[in-house]
C-alpha cells in the first residue's frame, strides 16, 4: 500500500470512529461532565444506568420487541420465499414487488400510516403496535435474503429428497431449513439489529411502555450527560455484538 491510499484510509477511519470513540470514552467518565476533561475510567454511569428502572424496562422492551418481531418476520419471509421459489404462480413478479415495497418507503411514513389506522380504529398504541411496525419493515429484507439464497443447489437437493420418499413437510424440515440455516440466521440477526436500533416507528406507535431508543430520546431533552454516554455506548455494544455474531456464524462458515 502506498502512502496516499494509506493516509486516506486512516483519515476515513478517524472520521468514521470519531463520534463512536468519543461516546464510548466519555461513558467511562468519573465526574458529571459529559465531555472532556476525561476523569475516568469509572463504571459509575453504567451502574447508574442499570439501577434506573425506566432504562432497564426500556431495555427489556427493546429486546422483547426485537426478538419476537424478527422471529415473525423471518418466518413469514421464509414461507413466502419458499412458496415463490418452488411453485410456479401467476403474477409472481407482482407479488415480489408487493413484498419488497415497504423497503422503498421511509420508516416515518410506515409509522404514520399505521398510527392513523390504529387511531381510526380507536385502538391504543403499545409495544404490540411497535412490533407490528417492525415486522412490516423487516419482512421485505428477510424475504429478499431468503429468496436470493434459494438457488438451484437447494432445489436439486429438495428434488433428490422427494425422489427418496420425503414428504413436503420433511423436505422443508430436513433439507431446506438446514441448508438455508446461514441465510435464516443472517436475516434474523439483521432484523434484530434494525429493530433494536429503530426509533421513529417505536416513537409514534408506543406510549407508556417504550423501547430503548425512545427512552434515550426523552433523556436527550435535558442535553448532554455522561449517563446518556453510558446508555448510548451500551446500545452500540449490543448492535455490534449482533453484527459480529452474524459475521462469525455466517460468513466464517461459508469459507
Amino acid at each position: 500500500m502506498r502512502a496516499l491510499p494509506f493516509a486516506y484510509l486512516v483519515l476515513a477511519f478517524a472520521f468514521i470512529y470519531l463520534p463512536v470513540a468519543t461516546l464510548v470514552l466519555f461513558s467511562f467518565q468519573g465526574g458529571t461532565l459529559p465531555v472532556s476533561p476525561f476523569d475516568g475510567p469509572s463504571l459509575r454511569w453504567y451502574r447508574e444506568v442499570l439501577s434506573d428502572d425506566d432504562l432497564t424496562d426500556a431495555l427489556v422492551n427493546s429486546l422483547f420487541v426485537a426478538t419476537l418481531s424478527s422471529a415473525l418476520a423471518v418466518t413469514l419471509g421464509f414461507l413466502a420465499a419458499y412458496g415463490l421459489a418452488r411453485h410456479t404462480l401467476s403474477g409472481s413478479v407482482l407479488i415480489r414487488s408487493l413484498l419488497i415495497a415497504p423497503i422503498t418507503v421511509s420508516y416515518l411514513i410506515v409509522g404514520l400510516g399505521l398510527l392513523i389506522v390504529v387511531q381510526r380504529l380507536g385502538l391504543g398504541v403499545s409495544l404490540l403496535t411497535v412490533g407490528i411496525g417492525h415486522v412490516v419493515i423487516n419482512l421485505p429484507l428477510c424475504f429478499a435474503i431468503l429468496y436470493a439464497s434459494m438457488g438451484a443447489q437447494q432445489e436439486n437437493a429438495e428434488r433428490a429428497a422427494r425422489d427418496l420418499g420425503a414428504t413436503e413437510a420433511q423436505v422443508v424440515r430436513l433439507i431446506t431449513v438446514p441448508m438455508l440455516a446461514p441465510a435464516i440466521l443472517a436475516a434474523f440477526f439483521l432484523s434484530v439489529t434494525l429493530s433494536w436500533d429503530e426509533f421513529i416507528i417505536a416513537f409514534l406507535l408506543s406510549r407508556f411502555d417504550v423501547t430503548l431508543p425512545v427512552e434515550i430520546w426523552s433523556l436527550l431533552r435535558s442535553g448532554l450527560s455522561p449517563r446518556l454516554n453510558a446508555v448510548g455506548s451500551f446500545v452500540f455494544l449490543v448492535s455490534v455484538t449482533a453484527v459480529l455474531i452474524l459475521e462469525i456464524l455466517v460468513f466464517r462458515k461459508r469459507r
Binding site: 418466518t75 413469514l76 419471509g77 414461507l79 413466502a80 419458499y82 412458496g83 415463490l84 418452488r86 411453485h87 410456479t88 404462480l89 407479488i95 408487493l98 413484498l99 415495497a101 415497504p102 418507503v105 410506515v110 400510516g113 399505521l114 392513523i116 389506522v117 407490528i132 411496525g133 415486522v135 412490516v136 419482512l139 424475504f143
Partner: peptide, 19 residues
C-alpha cells in the same frame, strides 16, 4: 404455493398497503 405466500401477503396488505 399460495398457502406459503398467504401469511406474508396478508401481513403486508393489512399493515402496509391498507395504512
Amino acid at each position: 404455493g399460495w398457502g406459503f405466500l398467504a401469511p406474508a401477503l396478508i401481513w403486508t396488505c393489512a399493515f402496509f398497503i391498507l395504512p
